[in-house]
Amino acid sequence: MMESIQNGVAVILVVTGLITMLIGSIGIIRLPDFYTRTHAASKVDTVGIIILLFGLAVFEGWTLNAGKLVLAIVFVALTNPVAIHILARAALRFGLRIWWKPDSSHLQEDAAKGKGESA
C-alpha cells in the first residue's frame, strides 16, 4: 500500500516535471527574442528538472541514491541561475537587441515606483 502511494507520487512528480520542461521548450519557439526565450528555456526548465529529480528521489525512498538526487537538485538550483545570468550578461554586453512590446513604445511609462526617492 505504502509502496504504491510512493510510486504514484513519484510518477505524478516526474510527469509534472516533464510537462514543465516541455512548456519551457515550446517557449523557446514562441517567444520573440533571446532574453524572453531565456526566461522560458532555462528557468522554467530549472523548475521542471527540480520537480523531476524530486520525483525520482521519492521513487528511490530513503536510500543513498535519493541523497545523491537531492544533492543534484541543490547543485542545479545553485548553478543554473549563475549560468543563465552569465549568458544574459554576455548577450547584453555584446549588444543584443531587446524586444519591446510594439504598442508600448508611446506610453513612456517610467514611473518611479520605489518606496524611497533619495539617492
Binding site: 532574453y35 524572453t36 531565456t38 526566461h39 522560458a40 528557468k43 522554467v44 530549472t46 523548475v47 538550483a77 545553485l78 543554473n80 541561475p81 549563475v82 543563465i84 545570468h85 544574459a88 550578461r89 547584453l92 531587446i98
Partner: peptide, 26 residues
C-alpha cells in the same frame, strides 16, 4: 539576491554593479 531573481521565472538578473541591479522582466 541575484540568484533568487534569476530563479523566479519572469525576472532575470542581467548585471550587478555595486548595489545596483539591472533586471530583465518578461
Amino acid at each position: 539576491l541575484g540568484n533568487s531573481i534569476t530563479l523566479t521565472p519572469g525576472t532575470l538578473t542581467l548585471d550587478i554593479e555595486g548595489d545596483r541591479y539591472l533586471v530583465h522582466s518578461l
